[in-house]
């Protein structure tokens, strides 16, 4: 059997209009050997989950700068569960106030990485926690 590649969806939910950060992260994950499906701006949770199903993603990475995380991130987890994709690792990043983090984790987001997190930390977290 060939070595299993980690497939990751990188999505930017919400309406803010620039995606330099998400693109940069996509490149970093690809350089770490992952197959990154970059979905672009203005993704709804439904679009993200449809992509995760069709691509059979192992990881969904959500980046939010516009304060929509409290709705969007848990909604993605919920929709994934509806599709019986409970084993998909959901991680988040962007500008997220500390006090929101426990709630997001409670909702099933595995980890939240704030701005300036060492990218190696993120990559290692994914490699250790992704479904095997």
């Amino acid at each position: 059997m060939a070595e299993k590649k980690i497939k990751m969806i990188v999505a930017k939910p919400g309406l803010d209009g620039h995606d330099r950060g998400a693109k940069l992260l996509s490149r970093i994950f690809a350089e770490a050997g992952m197959e990154v499906i970059y979905t672009g701006l203005r993704q709804t949770p439904e679009m993200i989950v449809a992509a995760a199903v069709q691509e059979d993603a192992d990881v969904v990475g959500l980046s939010s700068l516009s304060g929509v995380h409290n709705y969007f991130f848990p909604r993605v987890v919920e929709l994934l569960r509806e599709k019986q994709m409970n084993d998909v690792l959901v991680v988040g990043g962007g500008i997220i106030p500390k006090e929101d983090i426990p709630g997001l984790k409670q909702a099933g987001v595995a980890e939240i990485f704030g701005p300036g997190t060492n990218t190696e930390t993120i990559v290692n977290f994914i490699k250790e926690n992704v479904r095997k």
């Binding site: 690809a30 050997g33 197959e35 499906i37 672009g40 993704q43 709804t44 449809a50 992509a51 691509e55």
Partner: peptide
Amino acid sequence: TGGAILGDRVRMGDIAMDPGVFIRSMATR
């Protein structure tokens, strides 16, 4: 690196939610 960026979905936002459409990205590996 053995990795890949598969960015085709960026242009396919309008059909992403259509149940009559299935999109799969593949890396050349």
